[in-house]
Simulated scan of single mutants.
Amino acid sequence: MARVVCFGEVMLRLNPQGYLRFVQADKFEASYAGGEANVAVSLANYGHEASFVSKFPANEIGQSGINELRRYGVDTKDIVIGGPRLGIYFVEKGASQRPSKVIYDRAGSSIALARKEDFDWDKIFEGAQWLHFTGITPALGGENPEICLEACKAAKAKGLKVSCDLNYRKKLWTNEKAGEVMAKLMEYVDVCIANEEDAADVFGIHAEGTDINTGKISKEGYISVAKKLQEKFGLEYVAITLRGSLSATDNKWAAMLYHEDKAYFSKEYLVHIVDRVGGGDSFGGGLIHSLLKGKESQEAIEFAVAASCLKHSIEHDFNLVAEAEVESLAKGNASGRVQR
């Protein structure tokens, strides 16, 4: 299996129990997560050597976050210790026509205040085959855009594949700033992952004939988006997740992989959601795993979507599934019958 380096932020996640609203809660469940960390956990579950790089504070909350990654087999030796705090985010799970809500308390986190000299990328990438990051990390501001750029340049110099999930977050930066920063980083990216809104928000590339609010999806529109992204940045693969939101509880879930001027669409799943946060990251982890194993494009996109489909049934951010479970669903075993 491969060694994959994931660079980003881990936060303390706090959510009311069950489907309680924030204003009803008198206690919160605690877990740890972040876009790139979620991918690292998925890859460790599939048997890869997943290494997570970040900056954590020198206190018990930071150590608890490290312990949680180690619990699932993620290598944490390249996490830098220092800075004031771990970021926090609060999640209120939606149901039926009531959407989920996320509130961030991440300003001034250790990774947001990281410096370029904190990371020795040549050393970090020793023995690695892949680098993964998301658009969330440069959006943290400070020196993070420059840190991401240095990581990408060092990765390409050492022959690593680079993947990026655009993951636009309007609460962190503007469309204009995102487009400016991400365009520089995309020059080094081989595999671009996006959802139905990211390409439009970051690069102004829209999928015609699609309305995310009604769940209407145009396959031709997304092929056009993928082709434009590939031509603009010289990408090897473009993956776009296709979510048809029937309600906060029930979604249609599929994806497309665009490679060598051909689009590959997965089967579509009707998903009854337990927890959708981390769903896109579980897709990214499944796709990276598939490509590292040399799967053909159709098989790769089927595995990635099946992995993410299963994640929607799991509480909190991490996709705690085995490769065999994903393969079973991808091959059509979708009944959910008890396994004895």
Rank of each mutant, 00 (worst) to 15 (best):
Cys6Ile: 01
Phe7Gln: 03
Leu20Lys: 05
Leu20Gln: 12
Glu29Arg: 15
Gly35Lys: 06
Tyr46Ile: 03
Ser54Pro: 06
Glu60Pro: 03
Thr76Ala: 04
Lys77Trp: 02
Ile79Thr: 02
Ile79Glu: 01
Gly83Arg: 00
Gly83Ile: 01
Arg85Met: 02
Phe90Val: 08
Arg98Trp: 13
Arg106Lys: 12
Asp118Ser: 01
Gln129His: 13
Leu131Val: 13
Thr134Gly: 15
Pro138Ala: 14
Ala139Arg: 01
Lys156Pro: 00
Lys156Thr: 02
Val162Glu: 00
Thr174Phe: 01
Gly179Leu: 14
Ala194Pro: 06
Val202Trp: 06
Phe203Arg: 02
Ala207Tyr: 06
Thr210Trp: 09
Ile212Trp: 07
Thr214Val: 11
Ser218Pro: 15
Lys219Cys: 04
Ser224Glu: 14
Lys228Asn: 09
Tyr237Asn: 09
Ile240Arg: 06
Leu242Gly: 04
Ala248Leu: 05
His259Pro: 09
Asp261Lys: 11
Phe265His: 03
Phe265Gly: 09
Ser266Val: 06
Tyr269Lys: 01
Gly278Asn: 07
Gly279Ile: 12
Gly284His: 00
Ile301Thr: 07
Ala304Ile: 01
Ala306Phe: 01
Cys309Asn: 07
Asn319Asp: 14
Leu320Lys: 10
Glu325Phe: 13
Glu325Tyr: 12
Ala330Met: 12
Gly332Leu: 08
